[in-house]
């Protein structure tokens, strides 16, 4: 409401300028406020946030084996590691790591390693769960998309991924059961 109005309107310009400014600011606040419900509606809905946790029975998983379970639509890798694998994970000096983290900080109880099975590069699911899968040069997982290699603690050792495989929130509900989420 600025330009051509000035030319045609009468004297009291300062008051109108101020009035216009206030009105325009009010209208702008209103339009801005309208945008929020639209944007917010695209966030996860309440039922999605409340999604059930996942229970995993560890008893049938033999040493050296791994299972994949679903949690919040994502694969979770649960691996029962061999003594050698644990040793290998703990022997690595922290300076060698791209995302330094001790193996102890990533687990709750031996021999169980629980990580979110999504490559931290661009979201592919790395190979290494099945015995026939390639596990990469560090014995953990290998992402076929862009060649990231993870070690037996799920830490990034080689390739473009910046971070270790994430550890989901979980708790042991008994000696042989965990609840993820």
């Amino acid at each position: 409401m600025a330009d051509s109005g000035e030319a045609t309107a009468s004297g009291g310009t300062p008051r109108r300028d101020f009035l216009n400014l206030v009105t325009a600011s009010f209208a702008a606040v209103g339009v801005g406020a309208i945008a929020w419900p639209f944007i917010n509606s695209m966030q996860p809905a309440r039922d999605v946030l409340a999604l059930a946790s996942t229970d995993v029975d560890l008893a049938p998983i033999a040493v050296g084996q791994a299972v994949t379970v679903m949690w919040r639509g994502k694969p979770i890798f649960v691996r029962s590691r061999t003594a050698q694998e644990i040793e290998a994970a703990r022997a690595v000096p922290l300076n060698d790591l791209k995302d330094p983290q001790t193996d102890q900080a990533r687990i709750q109880r031996d021999p169980w390693l629980v990580v979110i099975g999504i490559c931290t590069h661009l979201g592919c699911v790395p190979l290494g769960q099945k015995p026939t899968d390639p596990r990469g040069p560090y014995g953990g997982w290998f992402c076929p998309c862009h060649g990231s290699a993870y070690d037996t603690s799920g830490r990034i050792r080689q390739g473009p991924a910046p971070l270790n495989l994430a550890v989901p929130p979980y708790a042991f509900t008994s000696d042989t059961k965990i609840r993820i989420g």
Binding site: P37, F38, N40, S41, Q43, A45, R46, D47
Partner: peptide
């Protein structure tokens, strides 16, 4: 009804 209950501001939309 899920839009009305669970989607953020779904009832408003």
């Amino acid at each position: 009804e899920r839009i009305m209950r669970d989607v953020n501001f779904g009832w408003l939309l």
